[in-house]
Design a protein around this nucleic acid. Structure first.
Lengths: 104, 104
DNA sequence: CTAATATGCAACTAAATGGTTGTATATACT
DNA sequence: AGTATATACAACCATTTAGTTGCATATTAG
């Protein structure tokens, strides 16, 4: 799969969206925290986190017996660029249509 | 599922990403065109399109025996806002860290 | 050293996904 | 009218996904 599609797919789940949002708010947490906070077993949490790791949105840092979840800086740049590009193209089409209709 | 997660999930597939991109480039096509252009059966194309319709990224307009695929204006706004928000928060955290380290 | 804690790895299940084929229906062409 | 075309709907299949439980391993606490 495309790297970009993989990023969107990783974001396409409420639990994973919540994880990313919490990270961006500066919250610090471990795999176990994700499990207890988001109401899923540790293994369930681990699987969601692996999806985010594979999409390079997140990295895992073992520290002692805990594993901390860290945000991967700049990981959303491609997704942002895609959306911006799509919207830009679409807007310029609408603008061209507007000018045509107004006869400019 | 959250409306937002549903949007990301809909974008989380190379074929659907391609459909959205083509629409934004101003291409005009029917369900049958998606099928032949993207190498999937009509029913396969139809299913992908339904995912995009459910996420409100696209609408289908029957015209005679054809069904045209149209881009749904502003449909990506929430996705864009989410990413912008996450990046903004993250950047301001990094900035705070920088200032702390530099002792400003 | 022993007990508790946090995770890893593997197996399993139910449901969703991505894809197909087959058949039916409506529209368009000659 | 009769044929070809574009789609709809349903059933089916293989794979992936989201979740679980069970057991093993490593680290921390007493």
């Amino acid at each position: 799969m495309t790297a970009l599609a993989e990023i969107f797919k990783a974001l396409g789940d409420p639990i994973r969206l919540e994880i990313v949002q919490r990270l961006s708010r500066g919250e610090t947490f471990t795999i176990g925290d994700v499990s207890s906070d988001l109401g899923v077993t540790r293994q369930g949490a681990r699987k969601h986190l692996q999806v985010l790791v594979d999409a390079k949105l997140v990295k895992l840092e073992p520290k002692g017996r805990d594993v901390y979840v860290r945000f991967e800086t700049n990981s959303l740049d491609d997704a942002k660029a895609f959306i911006a590009e799509v919207e830009k193209r679409w807007d310029s089409r609408l603008e061209a249509l507007r000018q045509f209709l107004e006869g400019e």
